[in-house]
Design a protein around this nucleic acid. Structure first.
Lengths: 196, 196
DNA sequence: CCCCGACCGGACACCGCTGTCCGGTTAGGT
DNA sequence: ACCTAACCGGACAGCGGTGTCCGGTCGGGG
């Protein structure tokens, strides 16, 4: 019977917990120090040895892909029911919010694409956005002239705004201003707490 | 009497030429291999020793700043006479073109800003754009609602498009599509050879 | 013609990161 | 209670980049 709280990180049963600790540590350190942070620091932050790190994730890229996987899983959950009220707007906000969480994501995306010939692995946004966008357009919430392609281009633009922002505290508002400039329907005010 | 062609890169008189060779090499290698290219490679590419490199440019940042300096000098030349026909459109195109020349510029900008507290050193675009924009707006070429601030935000968006482009050959057209999305007046077709 | 100061260049020591290897530890099965 | 297989962790060697140091080279001035 597995205890939910472990006193140790040794033994076969700890493998899963160690993996998660490494993933969390990587997410934190990538966000704080950038994608080029030493992997030894990730192991230290996770409280495991370097051996464990390299066993679970042979290289930096595997860490990045696992983090992407988590993010995409969350988005796919949001996109699962396109007819839920506010499905598209919640999805779109979450995409932008994920991007805002760490400017390191840009470097990760770039590096992952350079090393992986197949773009599909690294960019699942087209499939994720397709249905929710169509439904939102049918409901008149999003202009018809915006294609999935346009949305992805807008997302890429936001990368530029975030990565060039001097003060991290301003990243969010700059990104929202940028989105409003592209198309008002893609932006929102943070005052409205939910737009279900 | 200085000869325009030198047979050697030794001696006091070669200092200037060596400096330029280093700058050109850095520009080339940053564009090709990214900002993190080894400085030893820059010295080799320039055909000088590492000693000369570090004498002219104590660190990587000095190289980057000198490259920016060249770029800004060119832009300031274009902006010197805001009333020349097509002054703003030529200036704006050149800004975008400079950005397209190397995706490494993004990393350079980010790194330079992180290390230099004073933003003015690294971003002179506001001053450069101010007068030409006003004149172009007075002539009805650019919508009044676009501020210098908006233009700079648009420029930062373009960074994102360029850096996330998988195929470098597509960077230009993607950037132009993105600009058109923000505001048609900021984009152009590459077919028109000049819009003086 | 010679000398002197300045500059060049690459060898090299230092440093931090990567990835591996093996002794030590743990849980579960018998 | 013991045994075994799997897993942990950190020491360590290898590697590549940085920045320095000094012997060698050059050109202009006296």
């Amino acid at each position: 019977m597995p205890t939910t709280q472990r006193a140790t990180n040794r033994g076969p049963a700890a493998a899963g917990a160690n993996r998660r600790a490494l993933l969390d540590a990587a997410r934190r350190l990538f966000a704080e120090h950038g994608y080029e942070v030493p992997l030894s620091a990730v192991a230290r932050e996770a409280g495991v040895g370097q051996g464990s790190l390299y066993r679970h994730f042979p290289g930096r890229l595997d860490l990045a892909l696992a983090i992407f996987e988590d993010n995409y899983a969350e988005l796919e959950r949001l996109a699962a029911d396109p007819h839920a009220p506010g499905a598209f707007s919640q999805l779109w906000r979450r995409i932008i919010d994920q991007t805002l969480e760490s400017r390191a994501f840009v470097e990760m995306v770039v590096e992952a694409r350079r090393q992986l010939p197949d773009v599909k692995v690294v960019n699942r946004l087209p499939e994720i956005l397709e249905d929710p966008l169509r439904v939102a357009q049918a409901a008149g919430l999003i202009p018809r002239e915006l294609s999935v392609h346009d949305l992805i281009l807008a997302h890429r633009m936001i990368y530029g705004v975030i990565v060039t922002e001097t003060d991290p505290a301003l990243a969010r508002s700059s990104a929202l201003r940028a989105l409003a400039m592209v198309n008002p329907a893609l932006s929102w005010s943070d005052d409205e707490r939910d737009t279900a």
